[in-house]
């Protein structure tokens, strides 16, 4: 930055317009920021403000809006389908995070071992599912989960005696959520593993040596050295994985054939928002759903940061 603030006297004398130069100098930062600001205000902030306004209207296109006050929110809190969507999303988020993070950390620790042969290949292999789009994964798993002929049932039937070939992963309400959680595990464990891997490599090796000299066993080293060392990353992964889980949309949308699934067992908050906004055309109600989701996410994230002590320490 210092090079940009040095005024070259020769420039002033050559152009003969020191005022223009000063003006240009003052305006330049704003001009550089302006494109981003313009785009952000138009496509970021304005839609957010507009959605807040819409949440208080019954809408049928830009021409016919009727102000309904808090009615959309009142209806929302009494709406059984919304309750179901919230419950499903919370259950999905819980199981995704509870299973995903320990698995990702475990994998990262394993693939961080120097003795492991082919670990670069394994890192790529575990991360690879994340390179595929959710739509592709959704299509793939909806085929794998087909009863009678699907690969999952065939494999489980061969491995577990008594496992029914007819098991309906995507049409039986009891199996829909496990199917979604398993699919997302396959997709995201490798992604979170990369974060943990980077964090593990940043932990000071001297601390392990010191711990070993103090006689700490593997578990003690993990608790006293590894966990504190990766905590900022772990909190980041926890918060982003939770937010990502709450925003679940594409997988159930594809796997459950553009519906909430049997008995709405795969209906998520964002699916419900989409159905109302873009299939029923009720943008006002969809906006209300969106705002409740946003506020819910904010609350959950704050709770998580408080629970992990990050908020207090101001580390994030």
């Amino acid at each position: 930055m210092s090079t940009t603030t040095v005024v070259n006297p020769s420039v002033q004398s050559e152009t003969g317009s020191p005022r223009w130069f000063t003006l240009q100098h003052k305006l330049a930062p704003y001009l550089f920021v302006a494109p981003f600001l313009l785009i952000f205000l138009t496509f970021g902030l304005w839609p957010i403000v507009k959605s807040l306004i819409l949440a208080f209207y019954a809408t049928n296109g830009p021409k016919s809006n009727v102000f309904v006050g808090w009615n959309n929110f009142r209806f929302l809190f009494a709406d059984q389908s919304f309750h179901r969507a919230v419950w499903n999303t919370v259950v999905y988020a819980f199981w995704s995070v509870v299973l995903q993070l320990p698995l990702a950390l475990g994998l990262a620790m394993l693939l961080n071992q120097s003795w492991l042969r082919g670990r670069n290949f394994l890192r790529l292999a575990f991360f690879a599912p994340n390179l595929l789009g959710q739509v592709f994964v959704g299509v793939l798993f909806s085929v794998l989960f087909v009863p009678q002929y699907g690969l999952v049932n065939r494999a489980l039937h061969a491995l577990i005696p008594g496992f029914a070939l007819d098991t309906e992963w995507l049409t039986n309400p009891a199996w829909v959520m496990p199917a979604l959680v398993l699919t997302s595990l396959w997709m995201y464990v490798g992604f979170n593993m990369i974060y943990f891997l980077a964090a593990l490599q940043a932990v000071d090796q001297d601390q392990y040596e010191a711990a070993m000299m103090d006689g700490a066993n593997g578990w003690q080293q993990f608790r006293a050295v590894t966990l504190p060392g990766i905590r900022p990353v772990a909190v980041f992964v926890l918060v982003t994985a939770t937010i990502g889980s709450f925003q679940l949309f594409e997988l159930p949308y594809i796997m459950l054939n553009n519906s909430g699934g049997p008995d709405n067992s795969g209906l998520t908050i964002v699916s419900y928002l989409y159905m109302n906004g873009f299939m029923t055309g009720d943008l006002g109600y969809a906006s209300a759903v969106g705002w409740v989701l946003a506020l819910g996410l904010l609350a959950v994230s704050l709770l998580q940061m408080r629970a992990t002590g990050t908020w207090k320490e101001g580390k994030v």
């Binding site: 296109g61 830009p62 943008l283």
Partner: peptide, 12 residues
């Protein structure tokens, strides 16, 4: 089509 038409009709 459903969402495109819905959006197109809403926004004209």
């Amino acid at each position: 089509l459903a969402s495109r038409l819905q959006a197109a009709l809403l926004a004209n």
